[in-house]
Each structure stands twice: as structure tokens, then as C-alpha cells.
Simulated scan of single mutants.
Amino acid sequence: METTSLNPRTGKIVSIGWVPVNGRTIDLSGAGYIVVRGAQVADDAHVHLLTQNVIDAGEELESAMEQLRQAVQGRALLAHFAALEVGFIEAASRAVFGERPRLSVVDTFALERRHMERMGTYPRGEDLRLPRVRERYGLPRYGSHNALSDALACAELYLAQRGSTRAVTLGDVVQR
């Protein structure tokens, strides 16, 4: 998810991307990407690589949230530093549907932090950023600030994390 700020109370969703993971397979046929109408990007266009014209032609928040809701139905939300996405999803869901969604969450940031701590390495700031973690797993570099490529990057990281440790069940990684 790309947003205008890190604060769900004041920021707006700019775009949403998702890539389903089925077992140990990334399902690109189920991937989705939506630019959400309503944000003012002005000086941030260079960050999101989306012009105001593209955002103005995007989908309404209601439509975007309905599509996201369908995409995560029966699944866990997979994200890197998931608190950010969860905060924006909860705020948007309250605004659109009048309720807070029940989400099961898998956070690759938290998985990596726990892994590093078990290994006796205590991470600092940059150590847990998505590009740095992916680099440690030998994954390719992707550009930042695109919701779809970030979703793919997170999915790949998750599978790499699962491959580097003992067998993992969904119950081991889901945060409720």
C-alpha cells in the first residue's frame, strides 16, 4: 500500500497492490493493483511515481476497499511492517463499511526481527527495511514505492523466510 503519510488518521491511500501466496507459490494471476482517487500528491509525485492526473483517474475508495476485501477474504494479510497497512485498512474500512475488519496478519518485518534475535543479532533501523532484508536472502532488487512491486517483494521475502527455518504453519506466523 502506498499512502500520503504514515498516519492513517491524516493520510490517504494512494494505491493498493496485492499478490496471493498459495502454499509455497506466488499466484500472479490473482494479483491486483488499484490507484485510489482522492489523494493530493503534488510534491510527492516523485515518490509514488504517480502524477495527479493518474490519481484523479483512479478508483473511488469504496471500490478499492471492496476489491481489497475480496482479495483478502479467507486469507491472511501479508505485509512488511504490517501495522502501517492495518492502520490504513482499518481507517478506510470504518469510513466505507462502518466497521473494523477482522484481519489475520503475517508480518515479514516481525518474522525477520524474531529470526535475527534468535540468531543473536539485534537489528537496528535499516537492518529491517524491506530492501535490506531481501538483500540478505539473495532476492533481487526492485524499485520502491509501488504497491504492486512491494507486494511481490514481500511475497518473495515471505517464501524465502519460510525456506530458511523449520517448517512453519500459518498459526506460527499469524498475528491476531
Rank of each mutant, 00 (worst) to 15 (best):
Y158M: 08
R113N: 04
S29T: 15
F88C: 02
F81S: 08
R141W: 05
R24S: 14
V174I: 08
V21I: 01
L28Q: 12
W18L: 08
V19N: 04
F97K: 02
R94P: 04
R102Q: 12
E117A: 11
L6T: 11
P123E: 04
I34V: 15
T51V: 10
R37N: 10
P123V: 06
N22D: 13
I13C: 07
L28Y: 09
M1I: 13
K12I: 01
L111Y: 05
R136Y: 06
A151W: 00
R100P: 07
A91I: 07
Q70L: 15
L157Q: 08
H48R: 06
V133K: 01
V72N: 02
L50N: 04
L157D: 04
R113P: 06
V41Q: 04
Y158R: 00
P8V: 03
D43R: 13
S15D: 01
A92R: 00
D127N: 09
A83D: 15
I13S: 02
L103Q: 07
R162H: 10
N22L: 14
G74L: 08
G58V: 05
T10V: 14
G58N: 11
T169C: 02
F97L: 01
E59Y: 14
G23M: 06
M119E: 15
V54K: 09
T10H: 12
M119D: 14
R162W: 07
A39S: 15
R100K: 13
S29C: 14
L128E: 04
S15V: 03
Y122V: 06
M65Y: 06
R9E: 12
L128D: 00
S15C: 03
A147G: 06
E59N: 14
N53M: 12
R75S: 09
A151F: 01
A95H: 12
T121S: 14
A82I: 10
E90P: 03
L6P: 01
R162I: 12
A82G: 09
N53Y: 13
A39V: 04
R118Y: 02
L130T: 05
E90I: 08
E60W: 14
N7G: 09
V173P: 04
F81D: 09
V133R: 01
R124T: 05
R124G: 10
D43Q: 13
K12E: 12
E90R: 13
V72C: 12
R129V: 10
G163S: 05
R118I: 05
H48E: 07
G98M: 03
L148E: 09
Q175E: 04
Y122A: 00
R141E: 13
G32H: 12
A95K: 15
S15L: 04
G171C: 10
W18C: 02
R113T: 13
W18G: 00
E90D: 15
G98T: 05
A57C: 14
V47I: 13
G58P: 02
H115P: 07
R176P: 07
A31H: 08
L159F: 03
R176W: 10
V36P: 07
V36F: 01
R132W: 12
M1N: 03
G38M: 00
D43T: 11
L68E: 01
Q67I: 05
A76H: 08
R100D: 11
I16K: 05
R141G: 00
L103I: 01
I26T: 06
E85I: 03
V174K: 01
G87W: 14
A57S: 15
